[in-house]
Design a protein around this nucleic acid. Sequence first.
DNA 1: ATTTCATGTCATTTA
DNA 2: CCTAAATGACATGAA
Length: 777
Amino acid sequence: MVSTRRRINRCQMSVSMSSLESPRSSAFTFESLVHSCHVLRCLDDQRRRDQLCDITVVVEGKSFRAHRSVLASCSKYFTHKVSSHAGPGLVITLPQEVTVSGFKPLLQFAYTSKLLFTKDNVMEIRHCASILGFRDLDSACFDFLLPKFFSSSTSSFQRKTCCKIRCRRQSPRAELSVIDANKDVIDNDKGVRVVSDSPVEQDVGGASCQSSQPTNGATGCRSETHALLPEVNIQSDAQTDYSMRCPKSCKFQLACGKDSVCLEVCNQEATHDSPVVTEEGCPFPQSRSRSCLPCSSSRGCKEGPAVEIIGENSSHYAQTQTNQAGHGEVGERKGEEDGENVDKHERVGEVEEKRREAEKASGVGCFRSPLLEVSSVSCEQSPGLDEGTVGTASHRCPLEEPGLGHQSPGGVGEGGCVLGGRGLHEGLDPAVSIPRQQKTEQEQGGRGEEERREMDRDKEQGEDERRESGWEERSSMETEVAEHLAHGLWSDLSSPPPSLLQDSLPETGPENIQGSSSTLNPRSMSPKLDWLNQLHLTSSTGDCPFLHGLDRGMDSGTDREMDRGTGSGDAQLPGCEGSSQSEKSPCVSSLTSGDDGDSDGFDTEGDSESCSYSQKARELQLPFPVVQILALSKNDFQLMLKHQTLTREQLDFVHDVRRRSKNRSAAQRCRKRKLDCIHNLECEIDRLRTEKDQLMAERTNLIQMKLKTWQSVSELCQRVCSESALSPEQLQVLASPYCPLSALISPTDPASPGLGGPLQPLASLSACSSASEPLES
DNA sequence: ATTTCATGTCATTTA
DNA sequence: CCTAAATGACATGAA
């Protein structure tokens, strides 16, 4: 409910925004975030009931009923087959290579966006997916998961005991496969196991546990044009994640029926988040986001519709929980949503594509590359460009904005994003743009004005884009998942080598602390950036659908933080806190601080916090930037403290800052979880209601059948009684309660509640006939 | 002026 | 016993 309301608000907001953006146009677009999810659900429902199914797929002699349109939308193979057969009653026999165990999950995936798999069948599924041309699964999911699945390197991750237990125990709803998967993952493959903390674990584990669709998540919509609402998955994963990794959350999760919840969430949220439309066109939100979320992250929600969406996407389809659709997805999404906008989307997609390439060329594209810089500048200077390219989107559906943002969320680093986001921003958000100008003007007398301006631009762009694009949403769920992923998969990378720290410290620390001017220099961020860079480069986050694009968000988030820091001095955003690398990836930082939403100043508490932190750090003459406090892992942090000679006051301050930021992020996660649970429960309620209705209908049918049977039996008895001359003793025996046959005519048959009435005649009839059943057997 | 929401922080519990 | 995470409760600012 809550999420729904929020969602609605978002929609409204986006509508108004679009109107603002294009004052000239009187046309508005309303986009339901849950519609696609609902549709997919209904289709799945129909499939299960064999309603409106127009295709029969034969696999290994086994038939599967489905809707050709659905299959065609998910699979190239079916697209081809279906297009060549127009008639009704289409029966397609799949190649021998396709097995039931491989096809079934895919079919389910087509209708739910969820791919259930175990280590045992994942290869088979992949093979089938490859043969059938299931979009998005191959590169986005399998390419990412398989190596983790079967590589020993990841085995180091261990799931927490309670998590294991919970997974098994809590997944009442979880499908067998899920359970199996869990088992596999948990029990058999320690290596594969997606550790609760590890990203992989989340993917796999989460998927398995909840039957969530790792695939989706893996899909990494963003990276692939066709990506399937990875966000949704992500969110769900994230949720799962939570449940899995938090011992304490067991309480809550148990209360919520975590597993089911997770599933639900995924569905619901996904649905909501659906904004992220995949090629498949099923943005179904599963989570509400209900980020699946609904958007678990309130922040994300706050910012933009996209965010909300994020949360929701999860489920069904990724609808999930994800609010954050991938960048690339946006284009597709929109294209699917609006035929008109297809071209625009395509264009956007192209831009995105280029951006990606640029990123690749520049290393993950997380950090600002010259290219990025250029783009951002050009954007600002030439709004026309925005209009011409991505900017056009502004006139479209509000939801598109997020999409655009997604496409170019990179903020700092993304050329494409910059263009799109910029355009929208400039035109739409006076609050943002104006302050920017003012700022710039004010700063104009100062030295390094250019630098500052650029920083501002970048910062604003990043933030704006993030905001518009729904990055915040991503940041909430996706970030979380991503952080876990990064944490688990790249844990080794996550903690910056001491040497690196050492190197970076001298550079940034003192400078930042002391002079604001120096802080403004991008270099002040170098330590963190370096660290991030290393992470990205080495870990090749680009390969991870979950992390894909995160870097951008991260970058922007980081940049923002940096910028903030710069603005105030050294700054570190509390948001960064989560970043103890060992525990979390830097991505986390974006989660916290990134979403604050107030980009321009230190409006928010967090901002003011960071500001005060920085100030205090300066006062205390801390030898390192606050960022370090937040970004370092526990060990590194302690190491750093060892190397530094700090006064009691400084130590207290440092610990205080770290503790607060940690707690802050914990609170955020906690709240997100809560929202997710609520959403999940809502979904569960809906599901149970539906189930109840179905059962009631089934019961009615059975009762009717039973009644008919009784009637026919009674008629038969009558006939037999009248035709055969049974002795009173015989009739007595037949009527006796000890006779099994007597139950058939018993008016008070306990097994047929409510049938007493209709049976009465029967009983009386048989009684009249001086006994009852003949049953000569 | 009041309410609601989002967020940060503290205290406590739990693993 | 210590630590980190989770969570309830409270405070604060913004809309």
